[in-house]
Amino acid sequence: MAADYVVETRSLTKVYRDFWGRKKKTALNALDLTIHKGEIFGLLGPNGSGKTTTIKLLLGLLFPTAGDAFVFGEPAAKVEKNERIGYLPEESYLYRFLNAEETLDFYGRLFDIPAEVRRDRAAKLIEMVGLGADKKRILREYSKGMRQRIGLAQALINDPELVILDEPTSGLDPLGTRWMKDLILDLRRQGKTVLMCSHRLDDVQDVCDRIAILYNGDLQTLGKVSNLLEDANRLELRARDVKETPELRADLEAVFRKYGGRLEAVGHPTTTLEDLFLRIVEESKARPGRRYLPPAETAASGR
């Protein structure tokens, strides 16, 4: 196995069987995958495509029917590899009778982290996930988003080299989603490897370097996000301070014809709903009490 592979699967297969050993479903079929050190890797696919099964096989929560899974070069069944892994499950499966501090202390103990380091790291993580004011409340009283935040904190308590995130933005509002995506990018900057699975395609597109798309247990495609999304047959130009007129359109058609192509569309680009939402929230914070106006209306009103 190459040294910089953090995760490698070889013909990894998982077949679920019933009590009598009869085959129920092939959840994963001969998956071959490698994840390099320091990259953000996304597993995509609809429900039941095998994303979570892959993660559980890598974590040793499931045993492969055939094939192998290696993490840091060790078979996934080895417990020792978990020392270097942080895992955020899809639902934040934490003990709801513990408060945030107790939760991080508990998981810190499972890593055999000395008390002083544990306390220090827990305090920093609680602040990082923005739960400083709620650290004494038991998790039962937390909203779903807050549980996701403390779930992420527990995944980072051991300062892991590989962070596995199963639907990390599930239950988060747009602000939380952006915060989570920024954090994932920050983890990469720290040199950590991130494996995330999600069916929120925009999230994956925003942060992942490479993705694998699974469907019905089979790997459909694998590669760099930019490569996979690039449409080599089309060219996109953008311009500022130009009004869309029939003359402009005619001139552009003439230019493209000269180079053997043809003009498909001329229009104003749109932003994403997420960007719009975040801009509104930011402006509302900056200028409380004033209604947000779209840029076109702002220009018309002269404000």
């Binding site: 974590l59 499966y93 499972l110």
Partner: peptide
């Protein structure tokens, strides 16, 4: 059943 054991067993816990 609650899957809380997943979070525990993904730590270096025997």
């Amino acid at each position: 059943k609650n899957q809380t054991i997943h979070t525990v067993l993904t730590k270096p816990v025997l």
